[in-house]
């Protein structure tokens, strides 16, 4: 493989990263909007959110991408290929993500919402100041998995002629015929990105836990590499054990 061809792969890598970042950002936006809409008090809002989620969870991301790329222009709406790819990915992953958001919000104990009501917070303040700050750390482990799935799914964009890493690998294969080397190389590149993303997300998870006063930042040895942090059970957070300091409740 010449340097010129390797440069081609790097160009592809850059497009892959752009696809990943744009569609992750848009998917998160969609996930929160649809996830919260499914918990709305208005029946119509809940209904439309559910239709969106079930439809886009039901269909294939690749078919969706083809549809946006080939069929949508015939309805008079032409998207730049990169945007068609981004939109297809974020609509699919936003639908999955909305379920994660919904589940995590429901897992915040009702007592938290009641306490927020008792302090006269508005519904929006309850959500923003109390519910979401507790729900987001619960979402992170699943979002971390979804992010790797999204990275893998960016390769679908090559099918609609977006010059991502997979697309450029095909070009290089055609030029050199070195299938094993080329595909082996980019599989390695994908794995390195996935590995980096997973580690980064794990750091975020740990920080989020620490913000809630959970996790092992206070005492105890660092968790060994590769061991999963124990996930909190669904439902109300467990009451902490009395810790002994400040003995008793006397004033």
């Amino acid at each position: 493989m010449t340097f010129g061809l390797f440069k081609l792969l790097l160009d592809g890598l850059w497009i892959t990263i752009q696809l990943l970042v744009f569609s992750a950002a848009l998917a998160v936006l969609i996930a929160f909007t649809a996830g919260l809409a499914r918990l709305s008090r208005r029946r119509a809002v809940r209904f439309f959110a559910a239709v969106y989620v079930e439809f886009f969870r039901g269909t294939s991301a690749l078919v969706l991408m083809f549809w946006l790329f080939f069929a949508l222009p015939l309805l008079g709406w032409q998207l730049a290929p990169l945007w068609a790819g981004t939109l297809a990915l974020s609509l699919s992953f936003g639908a999955y993500g909305s379920e994660v958001v919904r589940g995590a919000v429901l897992a915040v104990s009702p007592g938290q919402r009641e306490a927020a009501t008792a302090l006269s917070f508005t519904p929006w303040q309850r959500l923003r100041l109390v519910v979401l700050p507790q729900a987001v750390p619960e979402m992170l482990p699943t979002f971390s998995n979804q992010l790797v799935e999204l990275l893998k799914a960016t390769s679908l964009a090559s099918a609609v002629t977006i010059g991502d890493l997979t697309f450029q690998a095909q070009s290089v294969r055609l030029a050199t015929g070195e299938s094993a080397q080329v595909y082996g190389l980019i599989l390695g590149m994908y794995f390195v990105i996935a590995f980096t993303l997973t580690r980064g997300m794990r750091l975020l998870e740990r920080r989020a836990k620490a913000n809630l006063g959970l996790g092992r930042l206070v005492t105890g040895p660092e968790a060994p590499l590769g061991s999963e942090p124990p996930t909190a059970p669904a439902g109300p957070p467990p009451l902490p054990e009395p810790t002994g300091h400040g003995q008793g409740g006397g004033i």
């Binding site: 007592g111 008792a118 302090l119 100041l129 809630l212």
Partner: peptide, 27 residues
């Protein structure tokens, strides 16, 4: 009206002081 609950329901995403200041400031 204020209320104190059986299960305390402090906001774990805020330190103790913020639990006490957030509502007076925001509300």
């Amino acid at each position: 009206i204020g209320m104190v609950f059986q299960q305390f329901n402090l906001f774990p995403n805020m330190r103790v002081l913020r639990n006490l200041t957030e509502a007076p400031v925001r509300v």
